[in-house]
C-alpha cells in the first residue's frame, strides 16, 4: 500500500515537472528564439493563403516545376512513411520503371539514383544538385526560358547540408519552385 502511495505521489510530481513544466519551458524558448521553425516553417502568400511548409516536400508533377524524390505515401504530410520494400524487391523495380519513364531517362542519360529511391518519410524536401540539373532541360522547355537561367538558380540555391561532411550539395525543391513562379511570400 505504501508502495502505491509513494508511486502515486511521484507520478504527480514527475507529471507536473517533466510534462507540464518541461513542455512549457521548451515551448517558450521556441517561441522566443525560433518562432518560424517552431511552427513548422509554414509559407503563406502575401494574401495569407498557405502554400506549404519549407521543411516538407509537396507533390510536383507538372513539367514546369522541379520534381521531388518519389514518395511512398504520395506526399501525405498527415500520415507519412516509406515504401519499406527490401532493396532486392521487384516492386521497387516496377516503381522505378515508372519514374524512369516519367523522366525519359535512357542508358546514355541515366536517372540519378536519388530520384528513383523514395525517402524514409516520403516528405524529403531536398534533391541533390545534380538531380536538379538533370531536370533543367525539361523545365526550360516547358517555361520557354534559357537553361542558363535555371543553372544559375541552382548554383545560387545549392548548399552543403553538413559542410565538410557532405560533399554532395542539395537544394530545397519547394523554394526553387517558388523562385521559378516568382511568388512573394511572407
Amino acid at each position: 500500500m505504501e508502495t502505491f502511495l509513494s508511486s502515486l505521489r511521484i507520478t504527480v510530481a514527475t507529471m507536473a515537472i517533466c510534462v507540464g513544466g518541461y513542455s512549457a519551458a521548451v515551448w517558450a524558448v521556441g517561441q522566443a528564439i525560433t518562432p518560424g521553425t517552431a511552427e513548422a516553417s509554414i509559407i503563406t502568400k502575401a494574401d495569407g493563403t498557405v502554400i506549404g511548409s519549407r521543411q516538407v516536400a509537396q507533390a510536383f508533377t507538372q513539367a514546369r516545376y522541379f520534381w521531388p524524390r518519389p514518395s511512398a505515401v504520395d506526399y501525405n504530410s498527415a500520415g507519412a512513411g516509406g515504401s519499406n520494400k527490401s532493396p532486392t524487391s521487384t516492386d521497387l523495380t516496377d516503381r522505378a520503371n515508372e519514374t524512369v519513364a516519367a523522366y525519359g531517362a535512357t542508358a546514355e542519360n541515366p536517372l540519378p539514383a536519388e530520384l528513383a529511391a523514395a525517402s524514409g518519410a516520403g516528405l524529403d524536401p531536398h534533391i541533390t544538385e545534380r538531380a536538379a540539373r538533370y531536370q533543367v532541360s525539361r523545365i526550360a522547355e516547358a517555361r520557354n526560358i534559357p537553361a542558363d537561367q535555371l543553372e544559375k538558380l541552382i548554383s545560387e540555391r545549392a548548399f552543403a547540408a553538413g559542410g565538410m561532411f557532405t560533399p554532395e550539395k542539395i537544394v530545397n525543391v519547394l523554394e526553387m519552385n517558388l523562385a521559378l513562379d516568382n511568388v512573394q511570400t511572407r
Partner: peptide
Amino acid sequence: ATTLEGVQQTI
C-alpha cells in the same frame, strides 16, 4: 495548405 500545383496538403 494549397500547393503550388493547387492540391490540398495537410501538414
